[in-house]
Design a protein around this nucleic acid. Structure first.
Lengths: 213, 213
DNA sequence: TGTGAAGCGGAACGAAGCATTCCGCTCTGA
DNA sequence: TCAGAGCGGAATGCTTCGTTCCGCTTCACA
């Protein structure tokens, strides 16, 4: 095995393989975002590679799905961390939502749930993500910019709503979701009328992660 | 139990069959609402009947789906008509949305789209539905209660967002959707900040109705 | 320049899921 | 009494899909 970090050749078979790594991942992302139940072959086709190029990298479809979801979770956390750095409390909160919607990250983590067995590390990442969102919500609420009857779990619901909006063109999808989000943000900034019903609770969405979905 | 001397027999085989008509329809509604790609057998099981009871009534799965969607469209129109009768412009608009969300009608008409060939009558019904929603939007907007940059197509998007929220318990699902809707309504009643991006256009969602979904 | 194998394309395979059909049974209703 | 409406559910034939396998190409290295 040659050292991968030592003057890596950028052309030839190896380079092509390295390039395929990302091409495949991007294709998988696009395909499963479009249809979480898409066949493996669709990913291969989209990536412009054969099926064996996929199976050389991932032991099974579940493996690929897990990797994809884990990446999505990481992106989610990055978005939350970046937003947290914003000094203005409301801008931090709103900016976070915009980032997540733009990156289409919620679909990745949620619509893929239940199609694979999550790792322990993903569990930890999920907790971390939750803490970050919690912080953003609390800040915005304490600053009086966010309605007081909103809880952290509302954020997930709200992202779900945005993720549901989809048209064939990805860029147009992004625009429409932004429009929807703007509407929600305008509602979140109000204090009246109060939100009806019991607020969503912490474990109320864990069922998603149970197998066979 | 024998029937009193009445012309239509309400007990016996015939009555059971008549009862099955509605039982099957309700089961189908519940099952396909939960999973638009559910197998026919799931409907039969839920209804507590055999498969042949289904095929006696509908020539094919597509037939059943079409009937279900058409019914949903009718419910949608009824909701819009009832809401239109409300004198207060905002209450009419908000009440319409609440009705549709409560009846879970949007999922029926939209998530099933593309799984069957629509009839001409359904096309007419869709136009009628659109006109009704248009009227409700215009009224609320002219009354100054609804933000001026909202268009009729936004309503579909917004219902889509609500329909995306789901938990295993139907009643809890309804509650959470109501909560989400309340947030949206609070946003819809604001005028600032304006909604970003080009508003959704009329034919922008027709692709749903093209086959093979 | 020879060679072992990494990397790959895509056909082949086997399992699963599903719409639809079919067979035989049970009652009904006249 | 009995023809048949109504029905349950196994059987059928097809499609879809995950995964494996085979043989070819190309590169790294001697």
């Amino acid at each position: 095995m040659p050292n991968p970090t030592d003057t890596p050749p950028l052309a030839g078979r190896r380079a092509q393989a390295a390039r395929n790594d990302t091409v495949i991942l991007e294709a998988a992302r696009a395909v499963f975002l479009d249809d979480p139940k898409a066949p493996i072959a669709a990913v291969a086709e989209r990536a412009g590679v054969g099926i064996s190029a996929l199976y050389r990298r991932y032991a099974s479809k579940e493996d690929l799905l897990r990797k994809l979801c884990h990446d999505g979770l990481r992106r989610f956390i990055t978005a939350a961390e970046e937003a947290t750095a914003e000094p203005d409390d409301w801008a931090a909160f709103a900016g976070f939502l915009e980032r997540v919607v733009d990156a289409d990250v919620h679909s990745l983590t949620v619509h893929l749930a239940g199609t694979f067995a999550p790792t322990e590390e993903m569990g930890r990442a999920a907790i971390r993500a939750n803490e970050l969102v919690d912080g953003l919500v609390e800040r915005a609420r304490d600053a009086g910019r966010l309605r007081p009857d909103v809880v952290t779990q509302d954020v997930g619901l709200l992202l779900e709503g945005c993720a549901a909006i989809r048209v064939p063109d990805p860029e147009r999808t992004r625009q429409l979701r932004r429009r929807h989000l703007a509407l929600l943000l305008a509602g979140l900034a109000q204090t009246e009328p109060p939100l009806p019903g019991p607020p969503p609770a912490a474990g109320e969405f864990d069922w998603r992660w149970k197998r066979s979905g």
